[in-house]
Design a binder for these strands. Sequence first.
DNA 1: CATTGGCAGTCTGCACTTAAGAGTGCCAAG
DNA 2: CTTGGCACTCTTAAGTGCAGACTGCCAATG
Lengths: 340, 340
Amino acid sequence: MVSERGLDVLRVIVQDYVASREPVGSKSIVDRYSFGVSAATIRNDMALLEEEELIAAPHTSSGRIPTDKGYRVFVNQLADLRPLSPAQRAAIETFLGSSADLDQVLGRTVRLLSQLTHQVALVQYPSLSRSRIRHVELVLLASSRVMTVLITDTGRVEQRLLDVSDELDEGFLAQLGSRLNATLGGLGLAEAAESLSLFPDQFPASEAAAVGRIASALIEQVLAHRQDRLVMAGTANLVRTEEDFSGSIYPVLEAIEEQVTLLRLFGEMEPDQNGFSVSIGKENASFGLGETSVLTTGYATSGGEVSRLGVIGPTRMDYSNNIAAVRAVARYLSRLLGED
Amino acid sequence: MVSERGLDVLRVIVQDYVASREPVGSKSIVDRYSFGVSAATIRNDMALLEEEELIAAPHTSSGRIPTDKGYRVFVNQLADLRPLSPAQRAAIETFLGSSADLDQVLGRTVRLLSQLTHQVALVQYPSLSRSRIRHVELVLLASSRVMTVLITDTGRVEQRLLDVSDELDEGFLAQLGSRLNATLGGLGLAEAAESLSLFPDQFPASEAAAVGRIASALIEQVLAHRQDRLVMAGTANLVRTEEDFSGSIYPVLEAIEEQVTLLRLFGEMEPDQNGFSVSIGKENASFGLGETSVLTTGYATSGGEVSRLGVIGPTRMDYSNNIAAVRAVARYLSRLLGED
DNA sequence: CATTGGCAGTCTGCACTTAAGAGTGCCAAG
DNA sequence: CTTGGCACTCTTAAGTGCAGACTGCCAATG
């Protein structure tokens, strides 16, 4: 069994290794920390930690580095989160405030998070499935090209481009728009989809084709509503930490650029009671991200629902600081987007 | 003066160097191409090319690599563009078609371009400044939080979140929305901004504050209209070509992630009569991108205006293929977004 | 005057050796 | 349980030598 001091040793090994990227030896530990015991004693503790597979030696005779399991134990012990530095708080504050486009808010948020953590930051778009149709607008872009815009009462705006094979005129489209608004306004998404599927029946055969196309585009739009998107920033940080990866970071970057992968990863994370979750190293192996750790937490959106944001970086990262940053940013974003 | 054959030699040096990343020697040239002269003759030509600073030797006694100036001459000579492969054409075709969100269209376009070129691809959002207001929608998200949505007849949709300090009720907001639509519908952007600045005067003092906030958000929105954005894909490709950069690619990636830099770069490019432009190596030095080349071209948007798209990658890139791909993708995107 | 073959000279890249340094594991003693 | 000591292992850096590649120059040739 690992002793109390053993866990302390694990802690300093993680700290030092994260700071220096060098395997940590017993000597340097007794030099830099006041354990009150000799290097040989530390070595005995380290032998135990190694038996438990919390640390490992890269070469027969070198210092130790934490294993994924070691990081896991370390993170679970991280009860006391280091508070953010004043500079970091200030960065969040200045970022806040001022009116802005939703895209801009999410864009700024993700850049902020990336700067605070020096990692790749991710913010999932609000999902907002429990919303109601507020307004539908049809815009004629060219003689047979139409853009549909859908606005919901939770603030989601969806647009879509489509080709209707028939030629349409503005007047017809305006009239169609009014009828759609009269029919759909205030409906929930599921009801709206159903109503839309019946909608073209009201029209004479000559118009039904075009109306049908528009209606099915709107249905797609209504149902695709849940289809999440991500914004990402700070991929340069991954390159900066390139040496933390055994091979090339190219496949890692590729995996990260694949939004589908990340959304699946987000979906499979199991949040604790605070909505926070940490996934370390091999726990992400099935996503091609076996050498990275992912920290995510939920944030509240105006639909009263929850989306996620977080960071992804090499297993060897500053968990303490990054967890604090992710939490703080989520708190601020919730305040900005959520219901008061 | 560089002879005709000298330019041929330059061409094969660029080709071979791009393909192999190895300095090209006189021997390998006579082995691989049928110049009908001996290696010594090629060496004489290379000496001339070196005098003109079109090629350079990394070490005293090694093969030659093209200089930025050499690439420039090479690109200017590229009259005959290699047509895209059938597979590449097919990729563009399948990507086309099916209704889609504007964001999705641009997102797919940029991913497509990145895959075709194996470089970082960029697409600028349509600017659409010559458009007219189509519809304004106000959505109450929380008691004092409002989202404004602006739709123009060119298909641009802008949303914005703002806090009005007063508490508002739905009814008031709905009424305000109707009045705004009545006032602004059909106006051009400049007129709309002017009209909006006078708008709050119509309201009693008790309401003027809230209305003023909403109006100024809309003004921002109308005027910020030109403020362009970019979508980007394929940063992983930059990492793959890491060895083409003298130092770390970290600063390069940082520069590329800075949208402002890229927009400035886009703005300063000088298109030829086809709207195409190539900027090579040191020509981009002021943007921190002195070791990259940028290929861009315009595409038509529904406003009848032109935005740009292109790729950015190491100076050592396959110009012929990439130029063809950028042109082809722009053509397809124009067809998709532009007026028929 | 362009072209050619030959040859000396230069530089890189790789394999190999050597030396220094850091750290462990183990043991016997406190 | 802790400690000091010591032999052993392994990495890293630096230095050496050699093979290979390419150029530059020159004198000869058509």
